[in-house]
């Protein structure tokens, strides 16, 4: 197998709070192969955003990496100094954020912001503006050269997300991290943005780590999927594995809760009963025990091992057949 672009091993991240240490991520193993799209799903608060913050080391002040290794193109990012890491951000790794309405600086023109991120390239300002305009056209913004002089508030939400995507790709990254880029958009725009991303990924051949809590979006866009629950990666595999042969009870419940698979009209939407356990004092055994329909005494005692279900497919549950 070729060297993965991003290789996360045994990553643990803690938040120090007045109430105690929140173990937000525990023993995460995740690889992003070159030119592939890896999706991460999970409900709010499961640690998706903490994971990507840890990768680019833009974490909250009270967060710290308790254990584990993050390798990017074979380089150990944990060993990087702040300035070395800054050298990677916005050159080899770039990001698209969740809320396009606040992701752009409101008092600087789009052009200025797009020129600024190319500060490492020794091109003239004119050349940088041309590059920026070409990229804007590529993401579907017409009359790009003159729109460079517009301010963010003069664009709609969907347009702004196109602009942030253009910015992320302008630096020709090896890895693009997209943190719920469509969550703040309405359904039609979401489809457009996903198509655009897919299209651009084929063109630019960069790897994408795509965060979402929207299963359909993941299925549409991704090659591999990781399912996160309460700070653990409970199952990972190819899109086919996860959507057709889900192993972990949580993945199954999640798929059943997708409103688009409900066939008959019903008064109640399916939900997973219960709440996420407190990450300050973790239960012993399986993290999903309190909400699992098939919970057994062993689940309350021992944490489940990661069981290999296929070439790329693993899930952490006591009751899975290899």
């Amino acid at each position: 197998m070729t060297q993965p672009v991003l290789d996360i091993r045994n990553l643990c991240v803690d938040y120090h709070t007045p109430k105690g240490t929140v173990q937000a991520l525990r023993h995460i193993h995740l690889q992003v192969p070159p030119a592939k799209v890896v999706g991460l799903v999970g409900e709010s608060g499961c640690g998706k955003s903490t994971l990507i913050s840890a990768v680019i080391r833009l974490m909250a002040e009270n967060a710290h990496v308790a254990a584990g290794k993050i390798r990017f193109m074979g380089l150990d990012l944990q060993g990087f100094s702040a300035s070395e890491l800054r050298g990677i951000r916005g050159r080899d790794i770039s990001m698209v954020f969740q809320d396009p309405m606040t992701a752009l600086n409101p008092v600087l023109t789009i052009g200025r912001q797009m020129v600024d991120i190319q500060y490492r390239d020794g091109l003239s300002r004119k050349k940088k503006r041309e590059r920026a305009a070409r990229m804007l056209e590529r993401v579907g913004i017409s009359d790009a050269m003159s729109r460079l002089d517009n301010y963010p508030h003069q664009f709609s939400g969907g347009m702004r997300q196109r602009i942030t995507i253009a910015m992320a790709l302008l630096v020709q990254p090896k890895l693009l991290i997209a943190d719920e880029p469509t969550t703040a958009l309405d359904a039609t725009l979401e489809v457009q943005i996903i198509r655009l991303l897919k299209d651009l990924q084929t063109d630019f051949q960069c790897a994408i780590l795509f965060i979402s809590h929207h299963l359909n979006v993941i299925a549409e866009l991704c090659d591999y999927v990781g399912v996160m629950y309460a700070g653990e990666l409970v199952e990972k595999g190819t899109v086919r594995d996860i959507f057709h042969r889900p192993g972990h009870p949580y993945t199954r419940s999640l798929l059943e809760c997708d409103p688009s698979v409900i066939e008959a009209p019903t008064r109640f939407l399916p939900t997973i009963p219960g709440d996420i356990p407190s990450l300050i004092d973790l239960p012993s055994g399986c993290i999903f025990q309190d909400r699992c329909a098939k919970v057994m005494p062993v689940c309350r005692k021992t944490p489940p091992p990661a069981v290999h279900l296929g070439e790329h497919h693993t899930a952490a549950c006591h009751f899975l057949e290899e």
Partner: peptide, 22 residues
């Protein structure tokens, strides 16, 4: 603490640019 500053950081802009210009 605003999002766009986080994004500027994610693009590796120098801290002086971020503080004094952005």
């Amino acid at each position: 603490n605003e999002n766009h500053i986080r994004r500027a950081r994610a693009f590796g802009l120098p801290e002086t640019t971020i503080v004094f210009h952005y």
